[in-house]
Design a protein around this nucleic acid. Structure first.
Lengths: 144, 144
DNA sequence: CTCAGTGCAAAGGATTTGCATGCCG
DNA sequence: CGGCATGCAAATCCTTTGCACTGAG
């Protein structure tokens, strides 16, 4: 599975004229190992070898290539996770106290209902949906 | 209705030891008149009398008092709207091209399903939900 | 050799804060 | 009168960028 992941990421990078360097590979592996989006400080702590500016730059490149997704929460740091089609469709539990993010998967029924609602809104407003986010904001177990 | 709005906001401000000044009233009226969240630049354009730092400060105060809600999108600007219990429960259409935000209201069925799902997640994970956001990210009619 | 990738340090830009002044209570 | 609110300007802090260096092809 990891092999396939790297192959796919490499393809997408090539698609935007970029190489799959060892640092980019390290970032992808870091994101694949964690089950929640990472901020740049998180990344720098987890891998002390990386230069901050390169992490910013490489995550931007990976985002542009469609391999990584940027998640905006409520605190000051942006977070990054692998693109959904490289992992699986999921949503976020965002802690309003610490800014941390955990993943969760919604029930198929909920997703079906959401999908139907999206179609309705789209036809009613002329808005073209690309994707949706169904996040819960609250207090995580650790902060409670 | 506007009267009641101001009364409620005044109460909440008092609740956190703050006054309902004319500038804060102006901000609330601005937010009440618009049907989508406003960024600080938006506010400064709409009311040229206001000082930037005061707008930041007063929106922070109003947020703390629970009268205003801060909306994070994908662009660089935070946006602000009246708290949901002062208006009505709704969700957002976020344009990934221009960063603009429009409101929309979900069907009661969708909200019911979401509410059920939230209860499930809550009991399963120990996460205490305060509220949820069901946003659609895509291209708005103007940018299409 | 060439050119993209990397690291360091400096620059950008939204947001916050210090301080002096004005005003409400 | 006392203390919060305001405005201006300076400071913060995440993020981006300039530039020289390194490394893969």
């Amino acid at each position: 599975m990891p092999d396939e992941l790297h192959t796919t990421v490499a393809e997408r990078l090539r698609g935007v004229g970029q190489r799959y360097t060892s640092q980019r590979r390290a970032l992808v592996e870091l994101l694949a190992e964690t089950r929640h989006p990472l901020s740049i400080p998180d990344v720098l702590v987890l891998d002390g070898e990386l230069a901050q500016s390169s992490v910013y730059r490489n995550l931007a490149v990976l985002t542009q290539a469609g391999a990584v997704h940027r998640v905006v929460t409520t605190d000051d740091f942006a977070r990054y996770e692998l693109a959904e089609d490289l992992t699986h469709h999921h949503h976020h539990l965002i802690c309003s106290a610490c800014g941390g993010v955990e993943d969760y998967t919604a029930s198929p029924q909920l997703e079906r209902t959401v999908a139907r609602a999206i179609t309705e809104v789209s036809t009613a407003t002329g808005f073209t949906p690309e994707h949706h986010r169904l996040d819960l904001i609250g207090i995580c177990a650790a902060c409670a």
